[in-house]
Nucleic acid binder design. Structure first.
Lengths: 204, 204
DNA sequence: TGTACATCAGTGAACGCGCGTTCACTGATGTAC
DNA sequence: TGTACATCAGTGAACGCGCGTTCACTGATGTAC
């Protein structure tokens, strides 16, 4: 059988559907993600996905899981090419965060749109994969916040602050977004983060 | 004509459609917003809206404009019942921001979903109303940031920082959201904001 | 004050579209013997 | 090694659904005279 002949079995349709869904979104926005389009892009009839996903919601969660995997990779990549200084590492995490949100904006929107996170109708394995991958990307941010002091009387506050700050910045000032600041130029995120004047924990 | 008889003319269908759309979303999520459902809720045939809106996109923008009006009101309300101390005022703005995002979550999501902000197919008057109202709510936040110093070499940084912070916090930790922090308790936003240690501009 | 008429703002039927899902089917694969 | 058979993973047709939009229409309103 040559490559030109189309086999009855796809090989790894599940994987192909996830990738197709991501590509579809990146080309035409979040709303372009439908079962039928994913199937078409994977070169398969639109009834085929039913053998791999319980329904469109299930495919969405699988895509979100994959997204978080990419997300963690993007963040880790910035960290590894940055010296192990705490502030530099934290800047690197945020840089990875913003680069991902910018390059994969529709996927990013999907991942953080809570209305998609309806675990009830999902295969437990798919739900577990999603939660694990989301935990992985968050873990990198948490780890980078570890060396810094929290605000008085506020456990976790550095994580919460940095996550909120970088997430809000990504949502509001993403280059691709049509929502620009209604005022003046937007300072680079590095200056914004430096403005927090985070302090290293004593003894580190 | 008694109130029980249905008049041929609605009275103010445009207004009724905007309100119907907001109510629909608040009850059933952003995806529940359709022309046909809005018309039905306003007690009118589904062809009637065409006399008031160019299309569904136009209605969406009108709803977003109305949302920003409510948003500004919610923020202003918190400000007026708070003493004129700069930090207290800034906390009040954020309080209003978070209360609105929590109480009107689907509307809030719609308002800040940039993929809806496609001004090209919209009646100029509707687009202008949206921009003006969005500017109004942003103006309150900007005003409350005015007394504080910016980070060195970063004009606007206080606005950008506070807006990103409160917006990200609203997106990530909104009570109604199923996206809870994957770690520990979430400190109150007031503590997070206080942790920024913003400084009043000298001479104020 | 009354009448003719233009305009406005509804109705209801119909259109085509893309969607998710179901179903009987069939070709390909893998396994037992 | 060969054969029978169960299981897997596709196909293609069909289903009903809700959607936005269009259209001829009609009742209500407002205005000119």
């Amino acid at each position: 059988m040559t490559k030109l002949e189309k086999p009855h079995h796809h090989g790894d349709l599940r994987e192909a559907l996830v990738i197709a869904g991501i590509e579809l979104m990146e080309e035409n926005g979040v709303d372009a993600l439908t079962l039928r389009k994913c199937a078409a892009r994977a070169g398969v009839s639109h009834a085929a996905p039913a053998h791999h996903f319980k329904g469109i919601a299930s495919l969405k969660i699988a895509i979100m899981a994959r997204g978080h995997s990419f997300f963690a990779t993007a963040i880790a990549k910035e960290m590894t090419r940055t010296p192990p200084d705490p502030m530099a590492q934290l800047q690197a995490v945020c840089q990875g965060y913003l680069v991902f949100a910018n390059r994969h904006n529709p996927l990013f929107q999907l991942m953080f749109n809570s209305s998609n996170t309806d675990l009830s109708t999902i295969t437990p394995a798919v739900a577990a994969e999603f939660l694990q991958n989301a935990h992985e990307s968050y873990g990198l941010l948490k780890q980078a916040c570890e060396p810094f002091e929290n605000a008085p009387g506020a456990a976790n506050s550095t994580e919460i602050t940095v996550w909120s700050l970088v997430h809000g910045f990504a949502m509001l000032f993403n280059k691709d977004s049509s929502r620009a600041a209604p005022t003046g130029p937007i300072p680079e995120f590095a200056k914004i983060l430096a403005g927090l004047e985070l302090r290293i924990k004593p003894g580190l």
